[in-house]
Amino acid sequence: MRLPKPRGGLSEWVVARLADAGAAGAAPAADSLEDEALALWTLHELSYRGFEDADDHAEWDPEVLHVRHGLEVALEDRLRSRWEAARPVAGDLPDDVPAALEALVAADDGPSLADHVRRRADLDQVLELLRQRSIYHLKESDPSAFVVPRLPVRAKAALMELQYDEYGDGDPNRLHAHLFARGLEAAGLRPEYGAYIDDAIAENLEMNNAGSLFGLHRRLRGAAMGHLAAFEMTSSIPSRKMAQGLDRLGLDGPMAAYYDEHVEADAIHEQLAARDICGTLAEDEPDQAMEILFGAWTCLDVEARFATAMLASWGADR
């Protein structure tokens, strides 16, 4: 993947700095939330697959890390203040984390892109949604993989049981990110990693940044696992709707098969994530219980913001 097109002064600075470590000058303030989100997305990408036109040393360059840190603090503050404003009972530690996760997911009333795809979306809208989703699905499960060494015994074993399935149970052909790439190709879209980063809307970048922020910081391991649980717990039924919508539009084949696979896989994963990962983590490290709920709520919230923006852009929000 090549460095993305800048969307303001800060992302322009980041792209220039990653392309050439000698590029002079201090980082400017961001011009917008979109500029800020793209800058952080680009910096986080250095810890995944990187860019062919960036210097690989930049990942641990103190000057670059300083900018990344500032952006991460701002993002975390924003996510936490949204959670503080929304959370129903302040200061109450849940004693049954899997049940609390279930209640949180059941109370989620965000708009559903899968409902729209199943019933009403036209082909252009679905292709646009797939381009947006490719930003995450082509690195599917990778943010959670960073968390493995940071967990106690039971949660670690359970996360590996889940991740093993995400990564194809040892078969590269069944690795979920690869299934999505095959689906993109069959739908006439570009399957290469990061191909559509310049199309990603600000809400999509923030959604991806939240997952990376949680995954990359040991301190945020509880939030990362809560995020994973909420993601898996809201995947099976929407995946079935996505597959039905794709069928309706004649996109049956590899892309529908990708969503089909997730109906079955995520019905398993949601149980593992809520009970064996988050439940045991909260038992072993009780101070993580509220963090798990913060991560789970944030997962639902950033998806709702993304869905709201997509539906509004299609005039489908009424």
């Binding site: 059941a106 099976s236 039924i237 079935r240 109906v263 079955e264 995520d266 019905a267 398993i268 949601e270």
Partner: peptide, 11 residues
């Protein structure tokens, strides 16, 4: 919808 496997419908 895909017996014998769970598809989340119980929820």
């Amino acid at each position: 919808s895909r017996l014998p496997w769970c598809d989340g419908t119980h929820k």
